[in-house]
């Protein structure tokens, strides 16, 4: 070994330039348009804050002694937010982004609230969004597992039995036409009367919503092998269970993952809705409810975003598992 330091070792800079190439490719091939859309949405949101919060801005300004038009509060109450904002452009703009209980809080207010209630508070505190997200997530996860298991089992039954196909599928479809907001309180009341409360009723509502996409996707997936592939197994004298394990189940995997993504989002909605009628004190649903009781719009919006971020993370995780599994199975997508 020589002890002179290499000026440029083999492969030096490869990692970096590789990363740079990846970044520029992402920018050209998808990130740039995505960011443009996000920027446009945020700009629209900021713009919308002005008329949405105009009534309060003008009221605050007139209380502080500023001249506003029209001067009579009764007259102002008759006017829409847009007209008020156009009549008092300076005042409406100044007051739009700093109200504590804005009708429409500004993005930076929501972002600050999100930051304050996640990063700056211990996750065990009842004021932490992470705590509430965890409460909701545990119900969602349990319900998602129950719903997915139930959906897969029912789909297997439907594919193998004509009687089940005729009898289960219509009820599965009917079950989804009932508004969840109507049936959720009933589920909670009925389960409470037999002594079950807490996590399980919410999970049941989650399962109720998430089994449906799984059953639909899996029926389609288990039936996806064409006649030729089924004939092929028939020429080997394969049994029904062999056909299931060697052909139907692996063929249904891509369909399963598509269903799981929809099913998870549905399960999360189910858990949140399940928290609304119980007067629950924990969970994102409880946070939404409390926010609307006390007019804490910033709290409502940050809980909404927490739910959206949670769903995005979990669906993203399912997508990663999907890519890894299908990659291992050799199925290029």
């Amino acid at each position: 070994m020589s002890d002179t330091a290499p000026i440029a070792g083999q492969g030096a800079g490869v990692g970096r330039s590789g990363r740079v190439a990846l970044f520029s490719r992402a920018l050209a091939g998808g990130l740039a348009p995505v960011l443009t859309v996000v920027a446009a949405l945020i700009a629209f949101w900021y713009l919308a804050c002005i008329p949405m919060n105009a009534a309060q801005s003008v009221l605050d300004a007139s209380r502080a002694g500023a001249v506003v038009s029209p001067e009579s509060p009764a007259e102002r109450r008759q006017m829409g937010g847009l007209a008020l904002a156009l009549g008092n452009p300076g005042i409406a703009f100044e007051g739009a982004y700093s109200q504590e209980r804005a009708r429409l809080p500004a993005p930076h207010q929501v972002a600050a609230e999100l930051w304050n209630s996640t990063a700056r508070i211990a996750p065990t505190s009842p004021r932490s969004l992470i705590y509430h997200a965890w409460v909701t997530l545990s119900a969602t996860g349990l319900g998602f597992l129950i719903g997915t298991g139930l959906g897969i089992l029912l789909a297997v039954g439907i594919v193998h039995s004509r009687v089940m196909d005729m009898s289960v599928m219509p009820w599965a479809i009917v079950s989804q036409t009932i508004p969840i907001i109507a049936i959720a309180p009933m589920i909670i009341v009925v389960l409470y009367s037999i002594g079950i409360q807490g996590l399980v009723p919410k999970a049941v509502i989650s399962a109720y919503l998430s089994f449906f996409p799984v059953i639909v996707g899996m029926v389609k997936g288990l039936r996806s092998p064409d006649a030729m592939q089924l004939d092929l197994l028939a020429t080997y004298g394969a049994s029904k269970p062999e056909t299931f394990w060697k052909l139907r189940l692996p063929a249904s995997t891509p369909y399963l993952f598509a269903s799981l993504k929809i099913g998870f989002a549905a399960a999360l909605i189910g858990a949140i809705v399940g928290e609304l009628p119980t007067g629950a004190t924990a969970g994102l649903g409880a946070r939404l409810l409390a926010g609307s009781y006390y007019g804490q719009t910033v709290q409502i919006w940050s809980a909404l975003f927490a739910a959206a971020i949670l769903a995005a993370l979990c669906v993203g995780l399912i997508g990663m598992i999907e890519r890894a599994l299908l990659g291992r199975m050799g199925m290029r997508r």
């Binding site: 592939q229 092929l232 197994l233 004298g237 199925m331």
Partner: peptide
């Protein structure tokens, strides 16, 4: 299992390697 049948399309299972596809009838048998 007195015959082997070759269909119009190859109909190989995409989640099995070539070896795995040839193994399929052998597994069943």
């Amino acid at each position: 299992r007195a015959y082997g049948y070759v269909f119009q399309a190859a109909g190989l299972y995409p989640w099995r390697t070539i070896g795995g596809n040839i193994r399929l009838p052998l597994e069943i048998m």
